[in-house]
Design a protein around this nucleic acid. Structure first.
Lengths: 254, 254
DNA sequence: GACAGGCGGTCGACATTGTCGACCGGTGTG
DNA sequence: CACACCGGTCGACAATGTCGACCGCCTGTC
């Protein structure tokens, strides 16, 4: 039976719709947005509600995502092997560099943050685990673009948004950048997504040399860069952490 | 069409199964665990995989939860009104008390942590957002048991585990404790779940006085308690924070 | 090295199952 | 007060998901 199960795909679409809209949605909104009969949408929503994936505001009757998703998302992190292996190395990298550390994996047309170490002894920061970053303008994303053909494929049909004046939006520019990244073995992003923020990323691969994710450090451009380029010592730290994680993932094989 | 959609319920069961077992599971394991034909389980898993809710290890062919769950779980937090309103109050409470702050809501037979503020300037701590705590042995849980009939109902059929020698496992003891909690307006838990840890919790209610969650502080029993009882000043802080959050939720109505 | 047993995955017939659109009662609004 | 819209229900219909046998592959074993 090759072919997705219709009701499941529709349920997934409903959950994504609820995740996308910031506010709660009514039954009719859901049904019309996805071209479903109201009865059909209701049946799916009712089941999702029973399972805890969706909750209904008893007052307005509108729907939003449910708590079970948070619980399962946490379970995903618990099982995630890359994340487990990388925890200690990411900590070390944050301490050594004094900057924020992110660990990301390719997910759809972006990078999903699976681990986040705050910059040591700093002001309040919000945890970004579970959020997404663009592929074409971040160090994490560009590393994956350079090494993961799937990531490069995902980029094919999406329009590239310019977040700042330094964002690369032309595909040929991106490809040239990727060639450079492959050649030197690391990626940077200087104010390409957020003004004032620069980051340096490197690839993590598994025992069979497949790309499985990326690490990066990210911080104020004044600290991360020097004379318009990222500091070589920070690059070395990031690459060394990426190698350590990759080696850790490959343990047991050799 | 009152009645859950079969394929959806089965998909949810599969995801819960994958979340429960620490390791990855094979197709046959999933099918036999849930009494499904292999073909059926495969169809569901394939669809879940397409949607990103499940991933398959290409090497072993075994399945685990997927990244989309993490993303949707994060979206749940983003939309969560209680959490949004409580963020700043929880921060204040942590600063004022010097202890860890948790914010939890009832979910199935437990308390789901939706916000967690680390104890100020302390050693490394792991974020527990998305994890569950038992109802009958934590301050958060006992608050909900005392005020939320649904929570009390959930307790009916589950055996109460004794985590320490101080855990209440008899239902009549629990009900007496709940009556006390309702009378004085707050709950505590002194080494009832973890040795050496005490916590103090209070109820959060919405504009219609329905229980919607609870806040608590949690810390070493030596700091939180005095002469075998929790410190009244900490109780006052927690109750004040709970009132502030409740008031915040009720804003716009009055 | 041939076999057996396990795996993940496919296939096609069947009827169970989810889908559809009309319909209901309640609510707020012009 | 009627209208429009909401969330929710119902029953007929056939599209849909389910089932169990089957396939090719790999692994371990005798």
């Amino acid at each position: 039976m090759p072919g997705p199960i219709q009701s499941l795909s529709r349920a997934a679409a409903i959950m994504r719709l609820l995740a996308g809209g910031e506010r709660r949605l009514g039954l009719s909104e859901v049904a019309t947005s996805l071209d479903l009969a109201k009865g059909t949408a209701h049946g799916i929503l009712r089941t999702l509600q029973m399972e805890g994936f969706v909750e209904q505001d008893p007052e307005s009757g509108k729907y939003q995502l449910g708590a079970e998703l948070l619980r399962l998302g946490q379970s995903y992190l618990d099982v995630h092997e890359l994340r487990a292996r990388a925890l200690v190395w990411a900590d070390d990298l944050a301490r050594a560099s004094g900057e924020t550390v992110y660990l990301g994996v390719l997910h759809q047309q972006g990078v999903l943050i699976v681990h986040h170490v705050f910059r040591p002894d700093d002001t309040r920061q919000v945890l970004e685990v579970g959020s997404m970053q663009p592929l074409h303008s971040t160090a994490l994303g560009k590393v994956l673009l350079a090494y993961d053909p799937v990531a490069r494929g995902e980029l094919g049909d999406t329009a590239l948004e310019a977040y700042t004046s330094r964002t690369l939006t032309d595909l040929t520019d991106i490809d040239a950048e990727c060639a450079l990244i492959r050649e030197r073995g690391w990626a940077d992003s200087i104010e390409e997504t957020w003004e004032g923020v620069a980051s340096i990323g490197a690839l993590i691969q598994d025992r069979r040399r497949n790309p499985v994710g990326a690490v990066c450090i990210s911080g104020a451009v004044e600290r991360v860069c020097e004379d318009g380029f990222v500091r070589p010592s920070l690059v070395a730290s990031v690459r060394s952490a990426a190698r350590a994680i990759s080696r850790d993932l490959g343990a047991g094989r050799f």
